[in-house]
Write a protein that binds this DNA or RNA. Structure first.
Lengths: 152, 152
DNA sequence: GACCTGTCGATGCAATTGCATCTATATCGA
DNA sequence: TCGATATAGATGCAATTGCATCGACAGGTC
């Protein structure tokens, strides 16, 4: 009667649970040392990796809703972590870049973040298991079977 | 230098992404037919499985924050999906139960939910993969190596 | 019983999210 | 060039979340 297999439903349930638990661990770790939420890290990392980006681009990479991203960038800009410039070749657009302070912030966040990842994931799975998990999860992460574009 | 292995970090990243993508699929499906958010389903399912429960108990099972659950139950009660009774053996407590309307609602939600799970998970993994994924994820879902209490 | 401490669940309030616009520009076709 | 339509990003507003606190009661001590 049910379209998804039992295993698929089980996988979904576990996914939700595991995510809730792991995310709570990570966010709690960051908060406990008064650091900003996880998304700040992600935004900063993308910006450092790819250079200044259009908000739209960030939105796609981070799967954030447009208005949420807009306000997230407001907050980050207010804190001096990112900078909004206007975009030369598109008058509607903006270009967002990490500031020096933003880069420094990301570096300060990493040890905390890393520790939490270890607690939430690393300490519970061995290398091979973690790799297998990542492999399976990656298949769920991209809309409509689009292959994740090459490098990371 | 980093405490978690590369694989652990990769697994974490994939977990976040996969969850975002899958959750978006499911919530969008529910919203597209004007059904309430996913959590309603979870609450109703727990209540049907385990009978009337204390909010505290639900909170533990669903990993919700206390105040959020309190208000979620407000909304569900306002919609007639659950019922709050006072608790005989503990004057502070309440007992929450699914109503008949709540059970009916859950049944209406299931086909939509199931379809979305199939789209987000079932169609992307075969049986064995889904089972393997569920197994790995379950190891992340419980605080501090507490074993998930027996049956499901 | 009075009192202290801990737990349960509710609630005020600020921060964040989601949704529906709104403005400014780009893009396309006549 | 003009007008219609589409896109980028910002913003008003309602709904939801997170946090701190509150009131009510349980459990223990004296």
């Amino acid at each position: 009667m049910s379209r998804p297999s039992e295993s698929a439903v089980l996988a979904w349930q576990s996914l939700v649970r595991a995510h809730q638990a792991a995310l709570a661990t990570v966010e709690a770790a960051l908060k406990s040392v008064r650091q900003p939420p996880l998304e700040w890290y992600d935004v900063l990392l993308e910006l450092e990796r790819a250079g200044p980006l259009r908000p739209r681009e960030l939105q796609g990479r981070l799967l954030l809703a447009q208005s949420n991203l807009s306000r997230l960038l407001d907050r980050m800009a207010a804190a001096g972590a990112v900078e909004r410039r206007s975009c030369d070749d598109d008058g509607r657009g903006r270009l967002v870049a990490a500031t020096q302070a933003g880069r420094a912030l990301r570096l300060r966040m990493w040890p905390v973040y890393a520790g939490a990842i270890e607690a939430a994931v690393g300490s519970r799975l061995d290398e091979a298991e973690a790799a297998a998990l990542a492999g399976l999860l990656r298949r769920l992460g991209c809309p409509d079977g689009a292959s994740p574009s090459g490098a990371g």
